[in-house]
Amino acid sequence: MALLSVNDLSISFGGLKAVSNFNMQLHKNDLAGLIGPNGAGKTTVFNMLTGVYLPTSGDIQLDGKSLVGLKPYQINHRGVARTFQNIRLFNDLTVIDNLKIAYHSHARYGLLGAICRLPGFYAGEKEIHEKSMELLKIFKLDHKYDELAKNLPYGEQRRLEIARAMATKPRILLLDEPAAGMNPQETHELMELIRWIRKEFDLTILLIEHDMSLVMGVCEIIYVLDYGQIIAIGTPDEIRNNRRVIEAYLGEEAS
């Protein structure tokens, strides 16, 4: 059975259909890509999957349970984490605090423990600190743990955002243009990282990306969206040679 199954998902904004009849089956450990010309509705799909937008119709099921109508934080608790196209870090906080915040739902002490500083608080804080440092090491940001997030270079900010999403211990990771603004070298490293975390954390990943080298390089299955509708599904090779996909992209460039 599919881990995440999306059935006939549609959304309209003021009568305009932004996404219509979107279907997707993600199995455990899949690494899938969602591509399409600008304005095709890719981020809108992410926003529906994570509860930011309420779909007009259709269903999203994780492990057979519907996610529709849940709030974003509840969907995160179910095991779906995301990054944002326009990076949304906690800018004025340190790198490590960005991760510690994401660990919040796994903290092992309560309000009373915090206010009265019960022993459980110290143990819990120690655990949060250590786990955060571990993750930072994986993302090669541990030497910068004490810097403010806003002071990191662009590529590192993108990496920190992925690390932060990982701190919520997701089963499914949604990456919205993770390579945007990166140079080819950084993009290459990011590809390695994405493959590695999938294996290491037994993760299912769906990513939106414009950088075709990345999409074709890491994704095993690709969904192509145009004008809010899926126009093709297939392996990188199938997508590369699909007429409709080529038209959609060329059409965009021609206009």
Partner: peptide, 17 residues
């Protein structure tokens, strides 16, 4: 504090804002 910093991100990171 995360709500002050970025409410949308906080909510996405599992914080009941």
């Amino acid at each position: 504090i995360s709500i002050r910093e970025n409410e949308i991100a906080a909510e996405a990171m599992g914080i009941n804002t």
